[in-house]
């Protein structure tokens, strides 16, 4: 067992799971989506990106790219949320929520790709 692999795998999988937790539920129902979870997902995703920096292998490059995509999409979703919150007192409208959630769903795909690569890489080096 390798401590590095444990930490790395923990963050990659946590990023995916938090992202899925945020996305689950009706797409346009604000009660099903928690802004705190979204914020936490962004933080974990950024940490994951940090861990991926500096890996010089081909797989490392692909992982970093996937992670950057997830960051970008989650941050975009958070910005949309902030803008929508300021517009009305009752919180974001159902259309806006639908948009935020679908952007976050895109980030889920990026995170799934990350996970698959990590699992594949581990299985390939059967040591």
């Amino acid at each position: 067992m390798n401590l590095e692999r444990v930490i790395f795998g923990f963050f990659v999988i946590l990023a995916l799971t938090l992202n899925v937790i945020f996305v689950m539920g009706d797409i346009d129902n604000i009660d099903h989506h928690n802004v705190w979870i979204l914020t936490l997902a962004i933080l974990v995703s950024l940490c994951t990106t940090g861990l991926k920096l500096g890996d010089r292998s081909q797989i490392g490059a692909l992982l970093l790219a996937a992670s950057l995509v997830a960051d970008l999409l989650l941050i975009a979703a958070r910005i949309v949320w902030v803008v929508a919150e300021n517009e009305s007192a009752a919180g974001p409208a159902p259309e806006t929520i639908a948009m935020i959630v679908s952007i976050a769903a895109g980030a889920v795909i990026a995170n799934i790709i990350s996970c698959i690569i990590v699992i594949g890489d581990t299985l390939m080096s059967r040591r």
């Binding site: 590095e4 861990l51 991926k52 920096l53 500096g54 890996d55 010089r56 292998s57 080096s125």
Partner: peptide, 22 residues
């Protein structure tokens, strides 16, 4: 073609990847 594999072959241990782990 993979620095990490070659390092592993030479040293027998996985070198840390990424700035943080290094």
């Amino acid at each position: 073609n993979n620095t990490y594999t070659l390092d592993y072959l030479m040293s027998g241990t996985d070198p840390p990847r990424g700035y943080f782990f290094r």
